[in-house]
Amino acid sequence: DTINITLPDGKTLTLTVTPEFTVKELAEEIARRLGLSPEDIKDTHNGKTLDPSLTLAEYGITPGSTITLEIK
Rank of each mutant, 00 (worst) to 15 (best):
L69Q: 00
D1G: 14
K24C: 08
I30Y: 01
G47E: 06
L7I: 05
T66G: 02
E29L: 10
L15N: 00
T14N: 07
G60A: 02
E58L: 02
K72Y: 13
T14L: 10
I67P: 00
I30V: 11
E25K: 08
I3H: 02
T66S: 05
G64L: 02
E20T: 13
I41K: 02
D40A: 12
E70V: 12
L13R: 01
A27P: 00
S37G: 08
P63M: 09
P19K: 07
R32A: 08
T62G: 12
L54P: 03
R32V: 06
S53Q: 11
T68E: 12
I71G: 06
P38D: 05
D40P: 13
A57N: 06
L36E: 04
I5N: 08
T44S: 13
A57G: 09
T6M: 14
E20V: 07
F21R: 04
I67C: 09
T62W: 09
N4V: 07
V17C: 05
L13I: 13
P52T: 13
V17M: 06
E58H: 09
D1V: 15
L36I: 14
V17F: 12
E25A: 09
T62L: 14
P63Y: 03
D43R: 14
A27I: 15
L69P: 01
K42N: 09
E20H: 10
D1Q: 11
G47M: 11
E20A: 11
G35M: 04
D43V: 15
I3S: 03
K24S: 06
L15A: 02
R33L: 12
G35F: 04
T44D: 07
K24L: 09
I71R: 05
K42W: 15
I67L: 08
T18G: 09
L26S: 00
T62M: 12
E58D: 15
T16N: 12
N46F: 15
G35S: 05
K72A: 13
E28K: 07
T12A: 06
K42I: 15
I61C: 08
G35D: 07
G35K: 06
T16P: 12
T68Q: 14
K48R: 13
T22Y: 01
T14D: 03
D9P: 03
E58M: 03
A31E: 04
L56H: 00
P38Q: 06
